[in-house]
Simulated assay, not measured.
Amino acid sequence: MITLSLIGIGSGNPDHVTRQAEAAMNTAEVILIPRKGAAKDDLAELRRAICARVLRAPGPVVREFDLPVRDASGGYRAGVEAWHDAIAEVWAAELADALPEGGHAAFLVWGDPALYDSTLRIAERLRGRMPIEVRVIPGITAIAALTAGHAIPLNAVGGPVAITTGRRLREDGWPAGHDSVVVMLDAGQAFEAVDPEGVFIWWSAYAGMDDEIRIAGPLAEVAGQIAAARAEARARHGWIMDIYLLRRAC
């Protein structure tokens, strides 16, 4: 039996690692760190830095492995499903090699494993491949890092909040019945498709990290500024993680 701990580590700041997460990391026998290519090596490096800061001697073995790349040439859902299957195969091989007699392994997950992250769905695919128990240690979410950075409440008084993706916002429009909308996984500046009249935006890139960028203001006034900052940051880092909250005047 392999116990697999999926440990939320926050959004890149080592101070976001909770005491529960620290304990889980130190009781694991192996920690697996995925590599996503040279352009995103910062993500692996942040995991390495967290391990160096949190792990106590003798500590678990830290192993790195390469993730397969998603084929974006076909349909979105089919491509994601095939990609998750391929990742599960790699995970299974890495776990079997690292713990041939069973034991405790851990993955460090950005933010919280339950919020717009596929780690739990990939872990579910392992059940048919090996005897495995999955445990989850929650982490600070990108949403919490966004609102903390801007020092704002997530919701209007008594109001609901919709959490969606950039693709859904662009394709489906503003979620009905919500004045506040959090947008994650936006690859194409979907806020540009929103009617800016009466809309305020709080935008953060690399929320919680040392390189965090924050811009806020009426959408009509700051949309261009955000687009320019986003392009410059992507060119500088080779990747970008951003998140934003849109709110209509009530």
Rank of each mutant, 00 (worst) to 15 (best):
G79F: 10
R63D: 01
E212T: 07
V194D: 03
A114F: 12
P175T: 08
Y206F: 10
D211L: 01
P138C: 00
G139P: 08
V69E: 11
V183A: 08
E197S: 11
G10I: 08
I143E: 00
R230C: 04
E221L: 02
I9V: 13
V157T: 11
G79Y: 09
T147V: 14
L6W: 03
G37D: 07
G128R: 03
L32K: 04
L43F: 07
S118D: 05
K36I: 05
M241C: 05
A227S: 10
R19K: 13
L108P: 14
Y244S: 08
E89P: 10
P58R: 00
T27I: 12
P160D: 00
P100C: 07
G158A: 03
H16P: 07
E64N: 02
E232W: 06
A93K: 14
V157K: 06
R170N: 02
P138W: 01
G111K: 14
N26W: 10
R129Q: 06
A72M: 07
P14M: 00
H237A: 10
K40F: 08
R48D: 13
D41E: 14
F191A: 04
V134E: 03
D15I: 12
A249T: 15
R53M: 11
R47S: 09
G37F: 06
G177V: 09
G188H: 13
T119C: 05
C250P: 15
A207P: 05
V61E: 07
I87F: 12
D85T: 14
A114P: 10
P68M: 02
R214Y: 03
V157Y: 11
G198D: 04
A228P: 08
A24E: 12
I240T: 07
P60G: 00
P196F: 04
W203V: 02
H84K: 15
A235T: 12
A193L: 01
F191S: 04
A205E: 01
F191N: 04
R247S: 14
P34Y: 10
G75V: 06
I33T: 13
Y206R: 01
G198C: 00
W83A: 01
R48Y: 13
L169P: 09
A220Y: 00
I215V: 14
D41S: 15
N155H: 13
A223E: 01
R127C: 01
A231T: 12
G177F: 07
R47Y: 05
V54A: 06
W203P: 03
D210A: 11
L154A: 08
